[in-house]
């Protein structure tokens, strides 16, 4: 497949410094998991959705997920954009960039992400959305699978690369700044809603008590596939299963008793017993935690989780 070439004039940014990890993400790759292809998409749905919304883009537009920082982009023309999610100390021509709101910049201005001040992943959405050729129905960049991204092959951004943007939508969002309650403080202890299920009944009573009543710490073994939590050792009466499909947010417990919450780039099937699944927004919240941060697992009901998800999505409807 050939590299996507935007027509001249449709480039939005030039990459001056690529940083450790900046990935193009639309809503994700669906209907292909029976082929062993993972979901991809934004690790933090909340931050990604707000960035797109504030930039005036419809749901599902492709934004750049900037992990940790280190990325510097130069505007190739006058642009409207928004950055939401983590505060990575972003600056526009050296001045602090306001987050969670629509911003305009002029051609030649320099947008730089430094390092994490609050949260781990920032989302840069540009009006019109970033454009790249779809692979299996999505531009979501999954490095491990070599799928998606600007080159279609899961490649990382390269210095000097020019990033294409689409035509801005005619109907832009009425809000140009996110309400206070949407601007999450990722430094606070996260309370992660978990829907019990799967093999939860096979865990010992003590383990279930500990899972939901003791603090967990985010391990440094954390990426877009999954986040390992360390804390009390959980014991399950079954050590492994016949491999089966794994949903987003599934919390699996390998024999060492330390749970792993599975995120967007997880393998499609797996054979460890599961405590249940984080809600989509809880998985998003976890994706903003830095190693060493404390989190709590909160048993939630389907009704609560559905209500919370509806409230979240209603903002971006229409």
């Amino acid at each position: 497949m050939n590299r996507m070439r935007s027509p001249e004039g449709a480039f939005g940014f030039r990459v001056e410094r690529a940083g450790p990890l900046a990935l193009l993400q639309d809503a994700g790759r669906f209907g292909v998991r029976r082929l062993g292809v993972t979901q991809g998409g934004p690790a933090d749905l909340h931050g990604w959705a707000w960035a797109n919304y504030l930039a005036g883009n419809p749901w599902g537009s492709a934004a750049l997920e900037v992990t940790f920082g280190g990325l510097t982009l130069v505007a190739e023309r006058d642009l409207t954009f928004a950055v939401a999610g983590a505060d990575l100390g972003a600056t526009l021509d050296g001045a602090q960039l306001p987050l969670w709101q629509r911003v305009r910049c002029r051609e030649g201005q320099r947008l730089a992400f430094a390092s994490p001040l609050n949260g781990l992943r920032a989302y840069l959405a540009v009006a019109g959305g970033f454009v790249a050729e779809q692979v299996l129905g999505s531009v979501a960049c999954v490095v491990r699978e070599g799928l998606g991204g600007f080159d279609g092959r899961g490649g990382k951004l390269a210095e000097g690369e020019r990033l294409g943007v689409g035509e801005p939508a005619a109907d832009v969002a009425t809000l140009t700044t996110a309400p206070y309650e949407a601007r999450l403080d990722y430094r606070a202890t996260a309370r992660l809603a978990l829907l019990p299920g799967a093999q939860s009944a096979d865990f010992t009573g003590t383990s279930l008590y500990r899972a939901f009543n003791m603090a967990w710490r985010v391990d440094d073994r954390a990426d877009r596939m999954g986040v390992r939590l360390t804390g009390p050792r959980l014991a399950c009466r079954i050590e492994s299963l016949i491999s089966e499909g794994i949903g987003l947010g599934a919390v699996q417990v390998p024999p060492d008793g330390q749970p792993i919450a599975l995120l967007n780039d997880r393998q499609t099937i797996g054979g460890y017993p599961r405590l249940g699944a984080l809600t989509p927004l809880a998985a998003s919240r976890l994706a903003q935690c830095l190693p060493g941060q404390e989190v709590h697992l909160i048993a939630a009901s389907r009704e609560q989780a559905l209500e919370e998800h509806r409230r979240f999505r209603t903002v971006f409807a229409g």
Binding site: R34, Q39, I242
Partner: peptide
């Protein structure tokens, strides 16, 4: 319907909970 993941003994059915409630 969002996705289907068949495996040896199971089928994981993933759906859009806003279009179809879990119940």
């Amino acid at each position: 319907l969002v996705d289907l993941v068949p495996s040896y003994t199971t089928l994981l059915v993933v759906f859009d909970p806003l279009r179809l409630s879990p119940d």
